[in-house]
Design a protein around this nucleic acid. Structure first.
Length: 569
DNA sequence: GTAGGGTTAG
């Protein structure tokens, strides 16, 4: 027997296998989107595609593989689809983010005289979350078909109205319900929390016979979001039962309020209390470490996730990438990034921002290309990173190309940050007029960052004329920022215009503006963070630091670095 | 006989 006959006999064999397998088993065993086609073929062959029970199962399977097209076409072949078939497909459209199509199918269902069930409306309310009028029509139908007292449907309606910010409507639904369960109460409390109305949220929560954990959690989250950490803390202490969401909400809340140390300490307390954290907790903690720049703790937390078998999901993944790159460990960030089993937009943004921050502009640009190849659509944040990197590296053409592709290929509208990047890119490259033109083309008012970038470019390229224009604007926007004065003073001094120097100095004095307070950097040694400023001699720890610094300067000089002393006045 | 549906942490 040659190879060809072996294959064809195998084929025959597998076909008959398919035919003999009970159809339900065949559908349930579909482990890939392709197998759905053979399952359907088998059903059509035996006319089982007319069976509503099987079709319901089949459509559900299609939905899980995102093959809603196949589900629809197979349903169209049916002579008498029943409510189960319609419901499966309506739900399928919602799951596949095609809400309008689910509504169209609903209309067809009514035309076919198939009576909707409560399941139909659960899906439909979800489908109408995007539009007020649609949702209201669905609500009307819910009344018309007698589901106005159905607890679960009414609860979804509360979600619907509160999502549109129509809290009074949501409350009306709540009040009109003849019976409510725990979910209903929590949903309504959560609606008030989302509306930042903690008084109403509290009042309602206190009317519950016993607050459930979800409600407590909801309130904690609300107070944290409003910056009321103390109340959140007291709720946390008061509540009788805490779950993982409670602990994670506290960690998240502290981070939200920039109290990262407390966030990390809650994490340790949680583990000491024997509560096992999950992926959400871990990514939150890692991100707190990133904000603090505490790489040692970050590593410890990273180790913890590895040792305890956490799934390296996109949240933990992007948090780790961000943490390592913010802590200066770009290599580790890259290592984590390339080993991620799944990467979403956030992971890509984290690594691109990391590369950009470390000055690897070309690599950041390459990453953008790679991400496009992997069909992840970049967003506005991605472009800010790439453009910033291009600016720092002076990659004018590349930056411009990326900027153009942002609007033409991705229809992303430039925000003020993108303009800021481009103005800086042009200014730094000496294309001062292009920068000015871009500023004038903006559809919103340029801010101080933009004029500041232009001013800085003018200093670099000695364009006093436009520097004065930028300075004038900056005097309106940020008249008390001493940096701009210093910049202009140094430019006048460079051209020996001492009278102008004196004039600007006089203005500074007149306004009582102090000299620029120096920017600071910090470094983590062991588990302590040390803060440095320019020309800082306060580190009495040892002279070694300064000796090392001298050596660094020397190496830099050897590498061809010329210190820019101009402009220091 | 079918569906697992509404609340809280990214």
């Amino acid at each position: 027997m040659n190879a060809l006959t072996t294959v064809s006999s195998l084929r025959r064999c597998s076909t008959s296998l398919l035919e003999n397998l009970p159809i339900l088993q065949l559908i349930k065993q579909c482990s890939s989107p392709k197998l759905l086609d053979s399952a359907l073929a088998a059903m059509v062959k035996t006319s089982q595609n007319q069976d509503c029970f099987f079709m319901n199962q089949f459509i559900t399977a299609c939905t899980s593989f995102n093959r809603i097209d196949l589900a629809l076409s197979s349903m169209t072949q049916m002579q008498e689809p029943n409510v189960f078939v319609y419901n499966a497909l309506i739900k399928g459209f919602v799951t596949c983010s095609l809400p309008i199509r689910s509504l169209e199918l609903y209309v067809r269902m009514l035309r076919d005289y198939v009576s909707p069930s409560s399941y139909t409306y659960s899906s439909l309310v979800k489908a109408s979350l995007f539009d007020r009028v649609v949702g209201e029509s669905v609500h009307a139908h819910i009344w018309k078909f007698g589901f106005c007292f159905h607890v679960q449907i009414q609860t979804t309606l509360i979600v619907f109205y509160s999502g549109l910010g129509r809290i009074e409507e949501a409350r009306k639904v709540f009040d009109e319900m003849p019976e409510r369960d725990e979910f209903t109460w929590t949903t309504m409390v959560s609606a008030y929390v989302r509306d930042f109305d903690m008084d109403s949220a509290n009042a309602l929560a206190n009317r519950m016979s016993e607050k459930n954990v979800a409600t407590w959690n909801c309130l904690i989250d609300g107070y944290m979001r409003l910056g009321n950490v103390e109340v959140a803390e007291s709720l946390f202490d008061q509540m009788p039962v805490k779950d993982i969401i409670t602990w994670t909400s506290m960690i998240k809340g502290y981070s939200f309020n920039k109290r990262y140390r407390e966030a990390i300490s809650v994490f340790y307390k949680m583990t000491e209390a024997g509560i096992v954290p999950d992926e959400v907790t871990m990514s939150t903690v890692i991100s707190a470490c990133a904000h603090l720049g505490v790489v040692e703790i970050g590593k410890e937390v990273h180790m913890y996730t590895v040792q305890n078998g956490f799934v390296l999901d996109v949240y933990i993944g992007s948090a780790l990438v961000d943490m390592y790159s913010k802590c200066g460990c770009l290599n580790r960030a890259l290592l984590v990034f390339f080993n991620l089993p799944e990467k979403n937009l956030f992971c890509w943004n984290a690594i691109i921002e990391g590369l950009a921050a470390h000055g690897y502009a070309r690599e950041a640009l390459r990453m953008l290309e790679k991400m496009e190849v992997e069909l992840i659509k970049p967003n506005a944040v991605t472009f800010v990173s790439v453009l910033t990197a291009s600016t720092h590296a002076g990659l004018v053409e590349e930056g411009q190309k990326v900027y153009r592709s942002m609007s033409s290929d991705y229809s992303i509208v430039s925000n003020i940050e993108h303009y800021g990047c481009m103005v800086a890119l042009f200014s730094k490259a000496g294309l001062i007029l292009e920068a000015l033109e871009l500023i004038e083309s903006m559809e919103f008012e340029p801010n101080a960052v933009i004029w500041g970038a232009l001013l800085d470019g003018c200093r670099l390229h000695k364009n006093l004329e436009i520097a004065e224009i930028a300075f004038k604007k900056l005097m309106v926007l940020e008249p008390r920022n001493s940096g701009y004065y210093s910049l202009l003073i140094s430019m006048y001094a460079g051209e020996n215009r001492w009278r102008d120097v004196a004039e600007v100095r006089g203005r500074m004095r007149g306004l009582g503006i102090e000299k620029l307070c120096p920017g600071t950097s910090w470094i983590e040694l062991g588990k302590r963070v040390h803060v440095f400023a320019a020309a800082d001699k306060s580190h009495s720890a040892s002279d070694e630091v300064y000796l090392l610094l001298d050596e660094v300067y020397e190496q830099m000089a050897l590498a061809g670095y010329v210190q820019e002393s101009e402009g220091v006045y």
